[in-house]
Amino acid sequence: MLNKVFGGTSILALMVATPAQAALPGPVKAMIDTAIASKNDVDIQTVVKLAKATNPDDIAEIDALLTAYTTEKNILAAAELKAKQEAGFFTNWTGEGELGAFRSTGNSSNTGISGGVKLAKDAVKWRLKLRAFADYQRSNGITTREQFAASIEPNYKFNDRLYAYGLAQYERDRFQGFSSRYTLSGGLGYSVIAEDNMTLDVKAGPAWRKTNFTNGGSDSSIAGLAALDFGWQISDNLKLTENASATIASDSNTFASTTALDAKLIGTLSARFSYTVEHETNPPIGRIKTDTVSRATLVYGF
């Protein structure tokens, strides 16, 4: 029966000429699935390229896996875009609140309580960030640490990377020598890295700053501001962030850096260990140029 001819070709000859296609080896598929689960497009493309090179007979199956991932990603992106377009001002906010202790050195050497809150709303063409924090301590009826800061930063997105920013910031730190400091700035920002596990935003622009000193004097000046925000999701339970800024003014330059490491505890609750350095090139008379603050806080994300 196998040698029966249909149109001049035997069934046996057809079976020999077109063998059954082999399935993609399990370890290779597992490697691709792991890369897709990471949602890192660079890693996915690298793994897929290697898989195709080492398994040329299974290119169609590899392409099918990649197409399925791309389709799902596009569907989710379209749903997210629609949600942003339809969301009202009071919806789709994300943020975090933190509370813990700090240890400072420099113009004051204290241990006290520290707290803060961050809020962000990300829409289609704009983004809004709100931030506030405070360090405070009283000892024997005397305030030995008092630092407050609050800021609001609207962004307008030209595309996925480039945006314009505005910034209004208030600070108070009597132990650095000023009862209040106001900063207004506007300029351009750019997302240098925008991966699922790593982000890096930089921004720069002109600024205006007014400082009211604890001795009763005040000063205002035109300045320049540059800043960066870096985030690295090292693993599912560990994240590193770095926020740094430089304000260059005629009266005094201010440099600030906060490095933080978050360790996930349970659910949306994390432990945060951070270290802040603040440096004034020309502080008021009697003040030290550099202050440092170490904080250990619990952070609740929402």
Rank of each mutant, 00 (worst) to 15 (best):
L2K: 10
N3L: 14
K4M: 08
V5L: 12
T18P: 00
P19A: 04
Q21R: 12
A22C: 01
D33W: 02
K39I: 11
V47D: 08
A53G: 07
P56E: 11
D57A: 13
I62P: 01
A64K: 14
L66Y: 15
A68I: 12
K73D: 12
A78K: 14
A78S: 15
A79E: 15
L81F: 03
A83W: 08
E86M: 06
A87W: 06
G88N: 10
F89A: 09
T91S: 15
E96H: 14
E96D: 11
E96F: 04
G97A: 08
E98T: 14
L99E: 10
S104F: 04
T111C: 06
S114V: 13
K118D: 14
L119N: 13
V124N: 09
K125T: 14
S139Y: 04
S139Q: 15
N140T: 15
G141P: 03
T143W: 01
N155R: 15
G166Q: 12
Y170T: 10
G177C: 03
L188V: 11
S191R: 12
V192L: 07
T199G: 01
L200R: 04
L200N: 10
D201V: 09
V202T: 04
G217P: 00
G224F: 01
A226G: 04
A226M: 04
L228Y: 00
F230L: 14
Q233L: 10
Q233I: 02
I234M: 06
K239Q: 09
L240E: 07
N243Q: 06
A246C: 04
F255E: 10
A256W: 03
S257W: 00
S257Y: 00
S257G: 03
D262P: 00
I266F: 02
A271P: 00
T276Y: 01
E280T: 10
P283K: 06
P283Y: 04
P284Y: 06
T292I: 11
S294K: 03
R295H: 00
F302N: 06
